[in-house]
Design a protein around this nucleic acid. Structure first.
Length: 458
RNA sequence: GAGGUUGUAGCUCAGUUGGUUAGAGCGUCGGAUUGUGGUUCCGAAGGUCGCGGGUUCGAGACCCGUCUUCCUCCCCA
């Protein structure tokens, strides 16, 4: 046998039944997006490297797939940089293009580029694949699809509230029995850093804090020590470990803790407002939780930070997002606040598969199969086939006059609903045999009755 | 990027301290059964043992490299 074919690690093929399920999921998501007033856009799969690099931090840059220059452009390789062991600069000279890493940064670029054609606040959604040169793991792929909704051009907290509702509605409609929407605010994190006297190292601080539920208090302390935080500032962080209770209780606790931090209190005001409105409006199956440890790696969030996890499933976050005030400024457009969230389609798919939430009917790609008894009978079937298709049913004629046994097995394997048999006798009598493949029941019908029945059945 | 783990038929996996011609189940195809599927029975096809090198009289097994799988860390959807 020839060399076994393969696909790159972290990528997948999708079989017809899987595509059917994915389409169902996307259709459900889109329908909700539409009702909330978001319109779809698309951007290229790859961008100029300069658009993407430096937007996701050092770690992010490492995970960006670069596209090697081709032809004469290869001569642009910066050999001096290589000689100086400056690998990042060398890599940049080799690749002027890169596959998009997420949809948010390309969207910021899009907004700046088309600012004169857009009406603000601009609400868009975007469902496209993104690529990360990450090490594949459970629920982690190198190619996966994100479903982003963002609104730019308004700093109204109404949109934070709207996005929480959106999480709740989409995931409820997809049938998830329960999920937790965690919310935090970057300003609160800044306030904590301020209180600890570590404003410069807010990233290290929040990344350590983010791991609290994973590595525990001691783990966080030792990580902070390792990062060089003083015993004094670590002591000031410790009260946060006791952060428990209802959302209201947590907010009260933090008001005391952040009493001296103006920015911290501003963040709490924002959170309180969102909680107040959501309490008023109510959620379906989601629970909104104030989670102080929620930090998220992305540097560009400035206000609310969101993350969603499915209950009772071993899977990382299935959605994430937040508010960013300066993202478009990176591309030269200042003063445009945005807030957006991303649904991790592939993880949601995995969760839905694990919980068996897809409708069974999605497995059916063919409603009716016409058995082929020979060329004359087949010709007779073709007219009926056309009429059945015009009724909107998925129908086909078996391609050859194979043994009936084989044709029925094919129908069985394809999970066909009904089989129509028209042999010489039936054709002469103007009748047909109509067989239900689930029950095995079979009846003789005239063509007219058959078509009426089809209209009723589907 | 760090550490561990895996790779044998289309799929899931056996294969003893290195020793004749590498096995099973499922699936596929054919038949039992020429107009009735899922069950059953019989038979067949299908393998450079991930790839490259090395040790050995002899390697699927041992050693080195490389790719791949899955996991932990990092990070993240």
């Amino acid at each position: 046998m020839a060399q076994k074919p393969a696909i790159p690690k972290g990528t997948r093929d999708f079989l017809p039944t899987e595509v059917a399920k994915r389409n169902y999921m996307f259709a459900t998501i889109k329908e909700v997006f539409r009702r909330y007033g978001y319109a779809p856009i698309e951007t290229p799969s790859f961008e100029l490297s300069t658009t993407l690099l430096g937007k996701y931090g050092e770690e992010g840059d490492r995970l960006i797939f670069r596209i090697l220059n081709s032809g004469e452009k290869m001569k642009k390789a910066d050999l001096d940089a290589l000689a100086q062991d400056n690998l990042p600069r060398f890599a940049n000279s080799l690749a002027e293009k890169a596959l998009r890493y997420d949809l948010t940064v390309p969207f910021a670029r899009f907004v700046v580029q088309h600012q004169n054609d857009l009406t603000f606040p601009f609400k868009r959604y975007q469902i496209q694949p993104v690529w990360r040169a990450d090490r594949p793991q459970h629920g982690r792929y190198q190619e996966f699809t994100q479903c982003d909704v963002d609104v730019v051009g308004s700093d109204a907290l109404m949109y934070e509230v709207e996005l929480v509702q959106l999480f709740d509605e989409v995931l409820t409609n997809l049938g998830l029995p329960g999920f937790t929407i965690q919310i935090n605010n970057r300003k609160v994190l800044s306030g904590i850093a301020e209180v600890c006297g570590e404003t410069a190292r807010i990233i290290d601080l929040t990344v350590a804090l983010d791991k609290l539920d994973k590595i525990g208090e001691e783990g966080v302390v030792s990580e902070l020590e390792q990062k060089g935080f003083t015993a004094q500032s670590i002591e000031k962080i410790k009260p946060l470990f006791q952060f428990e209770g209802t959302n209201a209780a947590k907010l009260d606790l933090m008001r005391t803790y952040l009493a001296d931090s103006e920015i911290g209190l501003k963040g709490l005001d924002e959170l309180s407002e969102v909680f107040a409105q959501i309490n008023e409006l109510g959620l379906q199956r989601g629970a909104l939780i104030f989670d102080l440890t929620l930090a998220r790696g992305l540097n560009y969030y400035t206000g609310a930070i969101f993350e969603v996890k499915a209950n009772d499933v071993k899977m990382g976050s299935i959605c994430g997002g937040g508010r960013y005030d300066d993202l478009t400024a990176l591309f030269g457009l200042k003063g445009l606040s945005g807030v957006g969230v991303s649904f991790g389609a592939d993880r949601i798919y995995d969760v839905m598969t694990e919980l068996d939430l897809f409708p069974k009917a999605l497995d059916r790609t063919l409603d009716i199969l016409f058995v082929n008894f020979g060329s004359q009978e087949a010709n007779y079937c073709m007219k009926l086939l056309r009429e059945v298709r015009n009724l909107g049913l998925a129908a086909e004629l078996y391609p050859s006059a194979a043994k009936l046994q084989k044709q029925l097995k094919y129908a069985n394997d394809r999970n066909v609903g009904y089989v129509v048999m028209i042999g010489a006798e039936e054709a002469a009598a103007g009748m047909l045999s109509f067989k239900n493949m689930e029950t095995g029941a079979q009846e003789q019908l005239s063509s007219a009755d058959f078509l009426t029945k089809c209209g009723q059945l589907f």
